[in-house]
Design a protein around this nucleic acid. Sequence first.
DNA 1: ACCGTTCCTTAACCTACCTTAAGGTTTTTT
DNA 2: AAAAAACCTTAAGGTAGGTTAAGGAACGGT
Lengths: 193, 193
Amino acid sequence: MKDIASLIQHIEKIIPLDDEARQALAIKVTSKKIRRRQYLLQDGDICRHYNFVLNGCLRMYLVDEKGTEHVLQFAIEGGWIADIGSLHTDQPSHFCIDALEPTEVLRIAKEDLIDLYVKHPAFDRYFRVLTENAFVGMQQRVMQNISSTAETRYLLFLEKYPHLFNRIPLVQIASFIGVTPEFLSKIRRNLMA
Amino acid sequence: MKDIASLIQHIEKIIPLDDEARQALAIKVTSKKIRRRQYLLQDGDICRHYNFVLNGCLRMYLVDEKGTEHVLQFAIEGGWIADIGSLHTDQPSHFCIDALEPTEVLRIAKEDLIDLYVKHPAFDRYFRVLTENAFVGMQQRVMQNISSTAETRYLLFLEKYPHLFNRIPLVQIASFIGVTPEFLSKIRRNLMA
DNA sequence: ACCGTTCCTTAACCTACCTTAAGGTTTTTT
DNA sequence: AAAAAACCTTAAGGTAGGTTAAGGAACGGT
């Protein structure tokens, strides 16, 4: 039983949909439950779906040659997640997506999305705006990485995602801001002093 | 005299335009020449245009509290540049855009772009795809920043932008990959040994 | 209710990268 | 053609952040 209402509500914050578009979307969308630690996308597979999180929490990350994980993105209720690069090029992804909590997503397959774009330009608009916002977020993150100290990056993270602070393990936050968990631990201690 | 042909050609690599759309675009676009070191956007101003580079080279960068510049993006022939965040929110930009070489751009004002979106959904599509590609690029850069050493980042930069290597001053490349020019100088020496 | 992970912290030592300073070369401007 | 910027390099000393190792607390699965 798909709870598509929250997805539609989300889209209509950006652009209204007519009944036909809503209907078309409802037909294309499928739902999926993921357990804690279960993969939604595995390194080496081609990303074939855009995923909208209904509840729970996902992370997308890269595993480097040394086996260290580097978190690129978290997604909670109301967020989208996918390896857009892999999705568009049909190349195997270098990323993994898995669940930090039991999670439920709605997903649209690439071909279905293209179909929606063609039949309902509103979706072009919605995903343009969505991607623009995500792009601006990534820009800010690049700037922070090349211009700020780890402590500042941590504080900026807390400011931007206050609700994630006591929901996500510290080790994941460390990975997201680009430091080791040991060093983040040190940063916290310094902040308390 | 606007050379809009190269812009249209660029767009049509992604989506064909009908005559009306081409015509509408031609009316909205203006051209502008910028001297070396001249600003196209200055820190504190609101970014009101999307800029398409016809020839030359621009950079977008942030100046931090210490006065150090951090390059977020370069744009050469065929590239787009704007502070999308500022453009969308009508908030003053924190970035500067200036010219590393004498440069000529075509530009579209925000309101005109919105008008194009409404009348010709093809532009929604084009800018969606454009932004998706830019987003993927930023994602890769974030990953490199949090997972790679400066030497690796330099090599990846050369691989991705081989044509920029002997066109852009070293100090700008250093700023882009997030190290001091002195350290990049050292990296180069090590690579030659 | 238990056991096994995962999670967080501390501390000693190590390294990638920054800072400051200086001198030489190339490019731009006049 | 000269003067002024901008550019690149070298080197010494400093600091942010990594590595390794180890112990304890909290959690998740059965």
